[in-house]
Write a protein that binds this DNA or RNA. Structure first.
Length: 730
DNA sequence: GCGCCCATAATTTTT
DNA sequence: TTATGGGCGC
C-alpha cells in the first residue's frame, strides 16, 4: 500500500453528519453514544486515520482500547487502508493486553517480575482451593467459585484485602476476608497475575511509579475507548490516569448495550461521563445501517421497557424487510430441528451462506442440542466459547509445562506437570504439599524450594522424593536453556519428548489420537512465533493464549453457521439471527428474575443486543418444554416477547378453516409428540404463503420429514422441506 | 502413591 | 446427564 495522502474530503466523504462530527471533534473529552449498527467502528477507524492524516499526530501517540483483540486487529487493518503502514504504530488492544504490556515494560518499578504468568479462571480456582485447604475451610461448605467471585468483585472495585477485611459485615464475608489475602500472597509467590490483577497492578503502576506515569501520560496524546458502557471501576480509573496529561479522551458506547454488570462493569462510567469531564462534548450516532425497520422497531419496543435509560430515537436507513418470526416449539429438539430446516430453506431459497447466519443462546449448555442436530443434518458450524479449546486436558498439560519453563515459581503448573507427565512419576500429593508449605513458611518461590532440596533449611521431603524432584528440576533447567536457542515449534516437539509426554500418544487409541490432533493444533498456533526474534517469544505466545477472547477465535468460513452466546455476540452482526430459548428462566435468566430489578433490566439489554445483531431476518424461538439435568420442565415464553408489537411478527402458519389440520400447529402441552408428518402425494394441489398455488411433482421421504418438489403457478419449481414449506393442501 | 468406584452437584453470562 | 472429587483398597 502506498503512503499517498488521502485528502480530508476522502476520509469524511462516506460519513453522515453525526459521524463526521464524531470524527472531527478532536480536542478535549468526547462522548460518542453510538446506537447499534450506527457505524461506530467506522467512526473510530476514520477518527484515528484523521488524527494521523490531518492533524499530524504520530501513530504511537494514539492509544485505542477495544473489547476484543479481534476488534483491535480489524480496526488496525482498516486504518491501514487509509494511512498505510503507519497504522501499525497505533497502540491498540484490550484493557487486559495493554495492561500486561505496560506491566512487562515497567512492572519492575513496582516490584513485578516481567516474566509473570497470567492465571485464568481455572488456575484461579486451583489457587483458591489450595488456600482453603490450608486454612481448613471446607470446599463443600463454601463454594470456591463463589469465593473467587467475591474476590474478583472486590478487586474490580479496587478493594484490596486490607480494605476488604475492614468492611466485613457477614459470616460469609468473613470467610472471603480470610481467603483473599492468602490468595494474593500465593499469586505473588508464584509470580502470577490473574485477570483482575492485570488491571489493579496497571493502575498501581500509574499511581506509584512516577517514571511510568510520566512516560505513558506523555506518550498517549489521544486515548480512545470502545464499549465504554462495559468498563468497570478499575478501567475507569486507569483511563483517567492515562489521559490525564493531554485530556483527549474519546469514549464510545451505548448504555442500552451494557451487559456485563455481573462482572462489575459500571454503567455509571458512561452515564456520568459528562459529570466527570465537565468540558466534554457529546455526539450521538442514531442512524442504523444494519437492520430492517421491523427488526429495529422490535428492538426499540423491547428496550423502551427499561426505566433506567436515556430516551433516544433510532432511525433506520433500510427499507422494509421480512417480519420477525416468533416460533414456539415443543421442546429443544424441535427447536433445533426448526432452526436446521429453516437454515436449509434460507440457503436454498435466498442463497445465504452459513457465515451469514448465527444461532444465539443464553447459556452455553443450550448449544449441545443444537450441535447434535446440526451434525446429524450435516450443517457446518463453529461453536464459540463453551468448553474451550484451551480447557482441554492435554492442552492444559502442555501449557502448564510451557508456563513452568517460563516461570519457575508457577507452583500450579508444576503440580499439573507432576501429575500428568511421566516426568513426575512417583511424586505425590504429600510431597507437593511439603514443597508448598516450605514456600509459604519461608515466603519464597518454588524455584528456590527446588534449588535448596536436601540442603539445610531446604524443604522437608522424603529422601526418595528428593532424588525424583532433583531429576525433574534438572530436566526443567535443561529445557529453559533449550527454549532460548530453538524456534518455538521445534522446542514444542523437544519438550514433549524430554518430558515423556509424547509416550501417551504411541498407542493408537482413538481417544489419544484425538488429543494428539488437538496438540498439533496448539503447535500450529505457535508457528507465527517461530518468526519472532525476540528472546521473549515463549512469553509472548503464552500471553496471547491467556488473553484470547471468545470472539478472537471466530474464523472466516463461508460455510459455517456461528453458534454463540448472547454475551459473546456483542459487536457482531449477521444477516440472519436466531435467538433461541426465549423463555422465562433463560432470558431473562432465573437468577436475575429473583434478584433486583436492575438485573432484569440487564437481561432485557442482553435480549436487545441479540435482536440488534440481525440485518435481514430475525427468528425468536422458545420451547414449551425443556430438559434440565435430564428432567423435562415446562416453560413459558419470555416476558420480553410481549413488548414486540404483533404487527412486526409473522402471522401464524396459514390454516384452512376446515378439514386438513395443519401439522404446524403446536401440540397442546403434555400431548403426545406428533409422530406422523402429514403425507403429501404427487399430484396434490397445494398453497404456499409466499409462492401461492402449486402442484406437487415429486415426494421424497426423509427421516421424520418429506421433501417435496412443487411446481408453482407463478414461481416455477421449488424443492421444499414439508415441515417448513408451510404448505396447505387444497 | 495410584487407580477405581460411587456420590453428588451442577448451568448464567467472560477477560 | 455429565463432571468432579472424595474415599478406599492395593
Amino acid at each position: 500500500m502506498s503512503n499517498a495522502p488521502v485528502s480530508q474530503v476522502d476520509l469524511l466523504a462516506p460519513l453522515n453528519p453525526e459521524q463526521r462530527l464524531a470524527v472531527t471533534t478532536v480536542d478535549g473529552p468526547l462522548l460518542i453514544v453510538a446506537g447499534p449498527g450506527s457505524g461506530k467502528t467506522r467512526v473510530l477507524t476514520v477518527r484515528i486515520a484523521y488524527l494521523i492524516q490531518e492533524h499530524n499526530i504520530a501513530p504511537w501517540n494514539i492509544l485505542a482500547l477495544t473489547f476484543t483483540n479481534k476488534a483491535a486487529r480489524e480496526m488496525k487493518d482498516r486504518i491501514e487502508r487509509f494511512v498505510g503502514e503507519r497504522a501499525r504504530w497505533v497502540m491498540m488492544g484490550t484493557f487486559h493486553s495493554f495492561s500486561a504490556r505496560i506491566l512487562r515494560q515497567y512492572g519492575g518499578e513496582i516490584g513485578i517480575d516481567p516474566n509473570f504468568v497470567i492465571y485464568d479462571t481455572a488456575d484461579q480456582g486451583g489457587v483458591i482451593k489450595s488456600v482453603m485447604e490450608e486454612l481448613d475451610i471446607s470446599t463443600r461448605q463454601f463454594n470456591p467459585r463463589a469465593i473467587l467471585g467475591a474476590i474478583s468483585a472486590a478487586k474490580s472495585r479496587n478493594i484490596d484485602p486490607d480494605i476488604y477485611s475492614r468492611t466485613v459485615g457477614s459470616y460469609w464475608e468473613e470467610i472471603v476476608a480470610r481467603v483473599y489475602p492468602r490468595y494474593q500472597e500465593t499469586l505473588r509467590r508464584r509470580n502470577a497475575l490473574d485477570f483482575d490483577d492485570l488491571l489493579t497492578e496497571a493502575l498501581r503502576l500509574m499511581r506509584e511509579s512516577d517514571h511510568a506515569r510520566r512516560s505513558l501520560q506523555e506518550r498517549y496524546q489521544y486515548v480512545l475507548v470502545d464499549e465504554y458502557q462495559d468498563t468497570n471501576h478499575l478501567q475507569y480509573l486507569l483511563v483517567k490516569e492515562l489521559s490525564q496529561e493531554h485530556r483527549n479522551l474519546c469514549v464510545v458506547g451505548d448504555p442500552d448495550q451494557s451487559i456485563y454488570g455481573w462482572r462489575a462493569a459500571d454503567i455509571r462510567n458512561i452515564l456520568n461521563f459528562k459529570h466527570d469531564y465537565p468540558e466534554a462534548q457529546e455526539v450521538h450516532l442514531e442512524e442504523n445501517y444494519r437492520s430492517t425497520p421491523e427488526i429495529l422497531s422490535a428492538a426499540d419496543a423491547v428496550i423502551r421497557e427499561n426505566t433506567q435509560r436515556i430516551e433516544r430515537a433510532l432511525r433506520t436507513s433500510r427499507s422494509e424487510g421480512a417480519k420477525i418470526v416468533v416460533r414456539e416449539c415443543l421442546d429443544e429438539y424441535y427447536e433445533a430441528r426448526f432452526i436446521v430446516e429453516e437454515i436449509a430453506r434460507l440457503q436454498r431459497e435466498a442463497g445465504y451462506d452459513g457465515s451469514d447466519i448465527a444461532v444465539l443462546y443464553r447459556t452455553n449448555a443450550q448449544s449441545r442440542t443444537i450441535e447434535e442436530t446440526f451434525i446429524r443434518a450435516g450443517i457446518p458450524y463453529q461453536l464459540i466459547g463453551g468448553t474451550r479449546f484451551y480447557e482441554r486436558r492435554e492442552i492444559k498439560d502442555v501449557m502448564a509445562l510451557l508456563r513452568l519453563i517460563l516461570n519457575p515459581n508457577d507452583t500450579l503448573s508444576f503440580e499439573r506437570v507432576i501429575d500428568a507427565f511421566p516426568l513426575g512419576q512417583g511424586i505425590g500429593a504429600k510431597t507437593l504439599a511439603d514443597l508448598e508449605a516450605w514456600c509459604r513458611i519461608n515466603d519464597r518461590g518454588l524455584g528456590d524450594a527446588l534449588g535448596m532440596l536436601g540442603e539445610p533449611g531446604g524443604p522437608q521431603v522424603a529422601p526418595r522424593a528428593v532424588n525424583l524432584l532433583t531429576d525433574v528440576a534438572a530436566t526443567l533447567d535443561r529445557l529453559r536453556i533449550d527454549v532460548e536457542t530453538m524456534p518455538l515449534t521445534r522446542f514444542f516437539d523437544h519438550a514433549l519428548e524430554e518430558s515423556g509426554y509424547q509416550e501417551h500418544f504411541t498407542s493408537g487409541d482413538p481417544e489419544m489420537m484425538e488429543r494428539w490432533e488437538n496438540l498439533l493444533q496448539l503447535r500450529a498456533t505457535m508457528e507465527p512465533f517461530d518468526l519472532v526474534e525476540d528472546e521473549n517469544r515463549l512469553m509472548l505466545f503464552l500471553q496471547e493464549i491467556a488473553l484470547v477472547s471468545d470472539q478472537d477465535q471466530i474464523v472466516d468460513d463461508r460455510d459455517r453457521v456461528t453458534l454463540i452466546t448472547l454475551h459473546a455476540v456483542k459487536g457482531l452482526e449477521f444477516k440472519v439471527v436466531f435467538i433461541t430459548g426465549a423463555e422465562d428462566g433463560l432470558i431473562p435468566h432465573a437468577r436475575s428474575i429473583t434478584e433486583n430489578p436492575e438485573a432484569l433490566e440487564e437481561e432485557r439489554r442482553l435480549f436487545y443486543v441479540g435482536i440488534t445483531r440481525a440485518e435481514d431476518h430475525l427468528y425468536i424461538t422458545h420451547a414449551a418444554r425443556r430438559s434440565r439435568f435430564g428432567y423435562a420442565d415446562m416453560s413459558v415464553p419470555s416476558q420480553f416477547l410481549a413488548a414486540i408489537p404483533p404487527e412486526l411478527i409473522t402471522d401464524p402458519p396459514l390454516r384452512k378453516p376446515s378439514g386438513n389440520q395443519s401439522r404446524r400447529r403446536l401440540q397442546p402441552i403434555g400431548a403426545d409428540q406428533p409422530k406422523e408428518t402429514p403425507t403429501y402425494e404427487v399430484g396434490q394441489r397445494v398453497f404456499h404463503t409466499k409462492f401461492g398455488d402449486g402442484i406437487i411433482q415429486a415426494v421424497e421421504d426423509k427421516p421424520g420429514d418429506q421433501e417435496v418438489v412443487v411446481q408453482f403457478v407463478r414461481h416455477g419449481q421449488k424443492r421444499l422441506l414439508a415441515s417448513f414449506a408451510n404448505l396447505t393442501v387444497d
